[in-house]
């Protein structure tokens, strides 16, 4: 194949990067999980991270809002900037960072509280609203944006853990939206859901793209192909290939990528 000839840094023109990672390496104790990863995340697009399990895609995602800080013995090297500011700089408050860079997890994890309190939790701790009316409004809009309002508006005081899996995940998305983040990280958000619920979440992710930058880790190549504009392929802790989604899936430059997307390994 002709791949070696034209290896250039893949660029998505006319969109500026909101997050940019340079030479990022992550260690868990002595074990290296990521090795010199470079990636630019374009604003208001959906970027998907794919690769076989254990390839470091989730680790990378968790670097972007410093969730790795909570893992004992985890060390991050290199440089990640958000709007040009180093997010690992000592003066950065990781709490505020996480408010700007929200996260939705693999398994729906609503708090065992009411639906209302789940969504209201973020605005409350960050002091985003002045009074009850404003808070109500934020909760309702967030639920609306997450496409859940119609189903739950009569039972906002019911507990969030009583919803179905797909509804729970949409509740978690609503909860993240209520903090009004710029970026939403999604760590295999559909892996615990059935196909119908998955379809709803995918629809939702595409709608959200207008206002948010979304980075999604997925093990489903079809999903990545369906919803994202840019795709990065991780393998053994490194980025093998990154580029425009269509190009990456139809005409991969690296044969490891080729192998993965045609199902030869992974």
């Amino acid at each position: 194949m002709q791949m070696l000839a034209d290896v250039t840094t893949p660029e998505i023109e006319d969109v500026e990067a909101i997050i940019s990672a340079k030479d990022v390496s992550v260690f868990y104790g002595d074990k290296q999980a990521l090795n010199n990863v470079n990636l630019d995340i374009p604003a208001n697009q959906i970027t998907s991270l794919i690769g076989p399990s254990g390839c470091g895609k989730s680790t990378f995602l968790r670097c972007l809002n410093r969730m790795n800080d909570t893992v004992f013995g985890c060390r991050v090297e290199g440089n990640i900037t958000l709007d040009g500011q180093d997010i690992y700089a000592p003066e950065v408050d990781e709490v505020l960072l996480r408010a700007r860079v929200g996260m939705v997890f693999q398994k729906p994890n609503p708090f065992p509280k009411s639906i209302y309190d789940n969504v209201a939790y973020g605005p409350r701790i960050h002091g985003l609203t002045r009074d009850k009316d404003e808070l109500d409004e934020v909760v309702l809009t967030s639920l609306e944006k997450a496409g859940l309002l119609k189903e739950v508006k009569d039972r906002l005081n019911a507990t969030g853990t009583g919803l179905s899996g797909g509804q729970q995940q949409r509740l978690c998305i609503a909860r993240a939206l209520a903090v009004q983040p710029d970026i939403i990280l999604m760590d295999e958000p559909c892996s615990a859901l059935d196909p119908i619920a998955t379809a709803r979440i995918e629809e939702l992710i595409e709608e959200l793209r207008e206002n948010y930058t979304i980075i999604i880790v997925t093990h489903s190549m079809q999903q990545a192909a369906r919803i994202s504009q840019k795709t990065a392929f991780f393998h053994m802790g490194e980025i093998v290939e990154v580029g425009d989604t269509e190009q990456l899936f139809t005409n991969p430059r690296d044969d490891r990528t080729q192998g993965y997307i045609t199902g030869r390994f992974g």
Binding site: M67, N109, F111, P112, V179
Partner: peptide
Amino acid sequence: VPDSIREAALGLGASKQQTAFHH
């Protein structure tokens, strides 16, 4: 208490102490 609860709160930008005392 499962870690998913802690992650959910931290992911929303709650501090470690807020996570511990609120959840």
